[in-house]
Design a protein around this nucleic acid. Structure first.
Lengths: 91, 91
DNA sequence: GACCCATGCAACCAAAAGGTTTCACATATT
DNA sequence: AATATGTGAAACCTTTTGGTTGCATGGGTC
């Protein structure tokens, strides 16, 4: 299984999840409520985001709050920077 | 079929293709020669990159040279920028 | 203890992704 | 004209992806 940051943000639902929790941490049910797909489907996206290390989840009573984990996302920016640098060198 | 820039760069082979032709335009056979997979497989990746509008192909005799097409790639950078801006606002 | 509510997870499914082999065809080269 | 090279594309296969329903569990609350 290819589990890198590029894969993490390839899916539009996962990008939307990231956008949502970037503004405010949300527990899993609240998050799932924002989408038309099932909670389980959202949960699976969360697992992928977790595996890719772009989010973290903190337990709070019986709820678990999801929040972005900056760091790994920069891998994408790094690749983009390198790529566009090459374009500039040999246009 | 989800055919956006995020999808285009999600596959490592496609990123490698982009990296290669960013340095120097290559025809399809030359490009395929750089990978261990079949020419047809590389060709399929090229079609996806074409559909996502991140490369262009120029005919030159019987050869077709692939080169990056800047522009659409910026969609990724735009999303990244907006995302990290949100992180900065509500940390 | 009994009952909710939020979550984890297994089993299953259809479609898409990524690959292969094979053949067709167009353009150079001899 | 015959041959070699570069490419396009069909048919097929396996694995991954993204989704579902249904059930188990575990921490609050009454």
């Amino acid at each position: 299984m290819r589990r890198d940051t590029f894969q993490a943000i390839a899916d539009p639902t996962r990008r939307e999840i990231l956008d949502l929790i970037a503004c405010k941490p949300l527990n899993i049910n609240a998050l799932a409520g924002r989408f038309s797909i099932s909670r389980t489907a959202v949960y699976k996206h969360l697992r992928i985001l977790l595996e890719c290390d772009v989010i973290e989840i903190k337990q709070c009573g019986r709820e678990r709050y999801c929040m972005p984990k900056p760091g790994k996302i920069s891998a994408v920016r790094d690749w983009l920077d390198a790529f566009e640098l090459k374009l500039r060198d040999v246009p």
